[in-house]
Design a protein around this nucleic acid. Structure first.
Length: 405
RNA sequence: GGAGGGGUGGGUGAGUGGUUAAAGCCACCAGACUGUAAAUCUGGCGCCCUGACGGGCUUCGCAGGUUCGAAUCCUGCCCCCUCCA
């Protein structure tokens, strides 16, 4: 292995920006300076295939290091996924079939490689080594750690003191992840700050097995679009990578203003100085945060789609959300399907409302109107069957439209 | 093996016989306002009928039962958790 590795003069864009903590930063810096390609480990469980912007912070880090010539090793946790990843709260998770795991893994990688360079990534499946693990191996592995060590881990400690369940497999989980590090001889493992314990177990185990302990590289938690909790699928405050452009742009525009700069910092290559400048002008109210947010939304949409899609999404936003105009494209409904229906039923029928009751609510709240092609807007009442012609548009709220054909 | 706690609407979590379609909070939806799908304010948030007033139906793990009336009481079952040994 004599591939060339670039050693940048200034390491802080790597070790500081978009980084929460490195254990240990000094050792890591020394490794980078040595000029050898590092083995960068990133694992995932193919249990929930959606990648969102929260994951991108780390993926960008991997990409950055790849571009310097380092080697990424992606571990597919097909084994840990099958026993069920217990991190977080609930220990109950249904077992996945082999087919589901394969499908999820494929979907994950499709998204992963939108950021990370596929050609410079080695993919390893856990089953390659755990598939032949024996009970003797398990005992060997578990004998190296104590329950006490594990109970000191923050989330376990909290749960324990609150009489919350802790499954035995949850104890096994970090061990398996640690063993992965040993097998692939990782130099650096990446994860969110919530992964600190697992990463450290890997570091420790490697030491016990006579390897150089890996560095633990932890990324900050990205706050979700609600502005409060960490971005996660289950909280619904996420922006998925496979989000259509308009959705992606729109969701980013729904960020609270105070998140703008951290998103720039973690998810773009905009220089620190420029970000500081934005921060300053927003604080002194000499700039409109909306403009920065639009810039962010455009940038990110362009990364995951392309520049054209991004500007289309932007015009859509300006048109529909800001000016309250009609969008260019909207679902079409055939007049014959809804002929003679009173307004409330009509909304339910066309999918603009989820039920008749919901439709009534929308109507009484003033969310519904009919818009003729000439721009005339007609208000409606729930029971009336309005006169409708092809070309008319029915609007239910800001973002829901249907065109009659 | 034993003792105890618990399963409520998308989430959390009150509610221990009627005033409970079920508090509060979160999420979500709509409206107003605005510099945005930010923030703020207001309203809504099971289903069906009604222009509205209002009416009807279904819901509190599952199945039975008691009662004029049950999320609330009884019986059985299923599931979850904690502790002791």
């Amino acid at each position: 292995m004599t591939s060339r590795v670039e050693i940048p003069e200034n390491l802080s864009p790597i070790t500081r920006r978009g980084v929460s903590r490195i254990i240990s930063e000094d050792e890591f810096t020394a490794m980078l300076r040595r000029g050898q390609p590092l083995r960068l480990k990133m694992g995932f469980d193919p249990s929930r295939p959606d990648i969102h912007l929260g994951h991108v912070v780390g993926l960008r880090k991997l990409r950055q290091l790849q571009d310097l010539g380092h080697q990424v090793i992606l571990i597919v946790g097909d084994w840990t996924a099958q026993i069920g990843d217990p991190s977080g709260r609930s220990a109950t998770r249904t077992m996945l079939s082999h087919a589901e795991v394969l499908e999820n893994a494929e979907s994950y990688m499709r998204q992963f490689f939108k950021v990370v360079d596929r050609d410079r990534t080695q993919v390893e499946w856990q089953s390659q080594w755990f598939g032949e693990f024996t009970l003797a191996n398990v005992i060997e592995l578990t004998s190296r750690f104590t329950i006490n060590q594990f109970l000191h881990r923050e989330d376990f400690a909290n749960r324990y003191s609150q009489n919350q369940p802790i499954a035995i497999t949850e104890m096994l989980y970090p061990l398996m992840q640690a063993y992965d590090s040993v097998v692939i001889e990782s130099d650096v493992e990446f994860g969110g700050t919530d992964q600190m314990f697992n990463l450290l177990v890997g570091r420790e185990l490697q030491g016990m097995m006579g390897q150089t302990p890996q560095q633990c590289f932890m990324m900050p938690i990205l706050v979700g679009t609600d502005g409060v909790q960490k971005m996660s699928k289950s909280l619904g405050n996420y922006v998925a990578l496979e989000e259509p452009p308009q959705e992606m742009y729109g969701k980013l525009m729904s960020l609270p203003d105070n998140l703008i700069t951290s998103y720039y910092e973690y998810l773009t290559d905009v220089p620190d100085a420029d970000i500081a400048e934005m921060q300053h002008s927003m604080e002194s109210e000499t700039a409109n945060p909306m403009d920065f947010k639009k810039g962010l939304a455009r940038y990110i949409t362009a990364v995951f789609h392309d520049a054209d899609a991004a500007s289309a999404a932007e015009s859509h936003f300006e048109k529909v959300v800001q000016r309250r105009d009609l969008p260019d494209d909207m679902p079409k409904v055939s007049l014959s399907d809804i002929a003679e229906l009173p307004m409330n039923r009509l909304l339910a029928q066309t999918g603009l409302a989820s039920s008749n009751a919901e439709a009534r609510r929308l109507i009484t709240q003033g969310a519904v109107e009919i818009i003729h092609p000439n721009g005339e807007r007609i208000s409606v009442t729930p029971g009336d069957a309005p006169e409708l012609r092809a070309g008319d548009v029915i609007r239910a709220g800001r973002r829901r439209f249907v065109r009659l054909v």
